[in-house]
Design a protein around this nucleic acid. Sequence first.
DNA 1: CACTGATGCAATATGTGATA
DNA 2: TATCACATATTGCATCAGTG
Length: 352
Amino acid sequence: MIDTVKFDIRLILTEAQIELIPWSEIKKTLKKGWVTCELFDQTDDTQPRIVYKYKEDNPSKAWLKLELSAPRYLYGSNVYELKQADVLPLLKGLRRYVATKLHIPLSQVPRYDAWEVEKLHICKNFHVGLKVQDYLNLLSGIQKPGGYKTVPYSAADGSKLESVVFQRNKKKNRSVHKFYDKQAELEQKPHYHNQSQHQRDADGLLRYEVELTYDDMRKHSPTRRAIELLTPQTAIAVLQSGLKTLGLTKPIKQASVRSMLEAVNRTGLNVRTKSMLIAFLMELHINGRGYCKKKYSRTTFYDNYNKLKEVLDMDEIHFSDITLPPLKVHKDSFKNKKSRSIGVPAEETTAK
DNA sequence: CACTGATGCAATATGTGATA
DNA sequence: TATCACATATTGCATCAGTG
């Protein structure tokens, strides 16, 4: 559900308190007189990182940031997904964590209802078994609408795809949707405590991760409250709409050209219409979407494209040699306390 | 008759630049 | 940093004239 999260906490320390805290690192910006104090554990990146920033000549101008990977902190690895039932205890625990680490009374730390969220990564693990590569292959050929670039990353030896990233990197409006082979990612990080256990649990996991923009967050909570954003509702809405724009929520059942062709011919449309759709389908397959948009008039393109979507029952038209189940987020995901990580694909849940 | 292509309208998302 | 106004792009929908 949630991986990385960064909280903005309105906490002001006295100068005496600042003195007493064993900061890991203190940096000063010479120009404007800002002091940045950081507190983290270099040997253990499952621990949250605290950053306190204040103005040197006016220590009441200050803010505190708390950043962590929730599942790594709670479960030791983000192979496992944060569950709804763990959210409030986590927030309470973090409040105590801050008080303890900073050696201040708990009452001085604002309650978590007042915390704002500055950074939020929502994620979902799909258990797709041996088909991780097939999904990544399919994804690497998809264009996400809205000015996203598709960037595939291959393993060092060049053999297999490890991740596909859809990113929009314009100024303030940075937005990233990332898919990757969870197991391959873990292999690159050698120093985990329970490395082999996590590795086994990551087998066959396709991970989907969305980095929210400020605007995304504000859509779900105008003031970016932690308690409103760290919920399954928000997570599921974000994941579903992301998957939908990529066209992955419907079964990718007839993605092969042959089966698409058969599907068109099975319809009750007249021969001429079928021929038209098939011609369009072939050009889409061979020359791509951009080519078709240019070749046909605006109206004709969308008429044909939408007709095909309807006939094939797909969100977007994708081509793949093998049959892939849809990626869907069940509305009860993240609820169950016990089962840890794995979402079940291939089943219709919220259509209608 | 079935389709193409041109046009206009509207809703939506995104990009930009100025501003407090 | 956040916000507002304004421009621009995308998409869907309706209409209409033309074509083989």
